[in-house]
Structure formats: structure tokens, C-alpha cells
């Protein structure tokens, strides 16, 4: 029969020699291997003091962007939800009233916008489907929570705060270069 591997070793039951029986040479050899690793380049980094660089298009937690004037870009068109293969996105639309023009960019906006981070597979199709450049994935990793309900992110967690804007220009320029 054809062999499946070239590294197979024949197992034998033969009596060990004296050198093998005192085990010392084998132990010393093993310690040598350990010692050698002290001087080798480490495979890990000391997280969180040191962090690995993210790819400019890393797909982490979503953000709902505002425009230059601080108005929400999302118009609740529902294309992200229909594109979502995991069905993680739900929304309820509402009509913008008079006097709310500084809050919402379009005449319709998402009153409720929820992403279930446990369902989300971070494929980025929502970002691709969005006609208003409202939803983007960021380089943020989903934080740990203690119950399942906290993983359903509402607008309070998704919409970028006015004083702490999220920079997605890198993703956008990467996209443009790809196109």
C-alpha cells in the first residue's frame, strides 16, 4: 500500500541501553532546545502594551458615520439589511420633522438601528451595499460583554459621537484605489 506520510517511524519494543535508561542526555538535549528559544525572535507581542498593526481594511465593529455638518448619513434604506447574509441588521425608519434638519441629512432616517454583533460575521457587505456611505467597519474589536443582550448594538453604540469622530478615510482611499 502507498504510504500516506514520509515521517512515520517504526515503533520497537527493544530493551533500552544504559545511556537511554539514565535519561540525562535526553533531558540535557531537551533543555538545550528550550535554551535556544530564549534567543530566538518571539512569535507573540506583549499585548496590550504592544499592538500589531491592523490592515487598513480590517473589518471590526461597525460605525454609523455623520457628514461634515454632523448630521447622520443613514437614511434607513434597508440595503445593508437585505445584503446581510447573517441577518444581523434591523431598522425602523421615521420621517424627519421640521427643525430636525441639523440632525439627519435625508428626509427619512433610522429611528432604530440595531446590529447583533453575535450574528454578524464581519463580511463587510453592509458597507459595500450602503448608497449613502453611512456604515463602515472599523479596526475596533467587539468588546467583551457579560450578557447576550449587550451585544445587540443600537444607535447609541453605532453612531459616531460628535466629539470623537471615527476616521475611515483610509478604507475609503483604499477602496478608490481598488476601483
Amino acid at each position: 500500500m502507498e504510504r500516506l506520510t514520509t515521517r512515520a517511524k517504526q515503533v520497537s519494543n527493544k530493551e533500552m541501553t544504559l545511556m537511554e535508561r539514565i535519561y540525562l542526555p535526553a533531558i540535557l538535549h531537551g533543555m538545550g532546545v528550550t535554551l535556544k528559544h530564549f534567543f530566538m525572535k518571539k512569535a507573540s507581542v506583549r499585548y496590550p502594551e504592544v499592538q500589531r498593526p491592523f490592515s487598513p481594511v480590517y473589518r471590526g465593529v461597525h460605525v454609523l458615520k455623520r457628514d461634515e455638518e454632523g448630521r447622520e448619513r443613514c437614511t434607513a434604506c434597508g440595503l445593508c439589511a437585505v445584503a446581510c447574509p447573517a441577518e444581523a441588521i434591523t431598522m425602523v425608519a421615521e420621517e424627519r420633522k421640521k427643525g430636525e434638519e441639523h440632525l439627519y441629512r435625508e428626509e427619512k432616517y433610522a429611528a432604530v438601528y440595531e446590529i447583533n454583533q453575535l450574528r454578524c460575521i464581519f463580511c463587510g457587505l453592509c458597507e459595500e451595499a450602503c448608497p449613502k456611505e453611512a456604515i463602515f467597519l472599523t479596526d475596533k474589536i467587539t468588546p467583551v460583554e457579560e450578557d447576550r443582550a449587550s451585544f445587540i448594538y443600537g444607535k447609541d453604540k453605532l453612531v459616531e459621537p460628535l466629539d470623537k469622530r471615527v476616521d475611515v478615510s483610509k478604507r475609503q482611499s483604499w477602496r478608490l484605489n481598488q476601483a
Binding site: 434607513a76 434597508g78 437585505v82 425608519a93 420621517e95 427619512k108
Partner: peptide, 9 residues
């Protein structure tokens, strides 16, 4: 039906 839902939902 205005803004109640989208047709495909």
C-alpha cells in the same frame, strides 16, 4: 405606508 417598511421586507 410612508416610510413604514421597504417593499422587500
Amino acid at each position: 405606508f410612508r416610510f413604514k417598511s421597504r417593499v422587500w421586507y
